[in-house]
Design a protein around this nucleic acid. Structure first.
Lengths: 96, 96
DNA sequence: CCGTATCCGCACGGATACTG
DNA sequence: CAGTATCCGTGCGGATACGG
């Protein structure tokens, strides 16, 4: 989701947090550090007050947006079919 | 990896286990049950001795092979670049 | 605003033993 | 062969508090 959010341009920490939704501050930080370590995301600090930090995709990070978009499209397309299958599976398990 | 392995045709439990490698019996079973619940994989039992169980992709499961192959191709292409980035990041952390 | 530090519950997954 | 059952350590991630 971070890769997808940054695919349209750099974004600040809290903007990212609001856009993704349901992510704790801790996990967003840890995930961003991981992506930074992997060379997929850059972190730029502007020494202003209040502080400002921009996150952006590196060239390699941008190459990942397409594969992830393909996967995301698949998930959107089959989400309801999969939920239906789960319901059928679960109710079949009850009758044992 | 299970989806990728089954993309070329049905496969038995232990064949799958050997092909994937490094997966415990427990985790392979749990993962297969999850895929079955999601309607991505079918489980077929042949009541022979010794028992035989075939796993195969459902039509929906087959639609997932392409998105995953795209992602896998990306991983193969950038694996070494990412490892290099990690090494650079880690050695930069040491000097603090 | 953008984090880090600390505590803690819990569930993930390995190891092992057992079974039809 | 293809599992299930049980025990158990560890690490993930939430919650909370604090700081530049």
């Amino acid at each position: 989701m971070i890769i997808g959010a940054l695919s349209r341009g750099p974004m600040r920490f809290n903007a990212l947090r609001r856009l993704i939704g349901g992510v704790s501050q801790r996990m967003l930080t840890l995930t961003l550090r991981g992506l930074e370590r992997d060379g997929l995301v850059t972190r730029t600090v502007y020494p202003t007050i209040p502080p400002r930090v921009d996150y952006a995709l590196t060239p390699i990070g941008q190459t990942l947006t397409e594969p992830l978009r393909v996967l995301s499209d698949w998930a959107m397309a089959y989400q309801s079919a999969i939920e239906t299958a789960q319901d059928a599976y679960d109710s079949a398990q009850e009758n044992l």
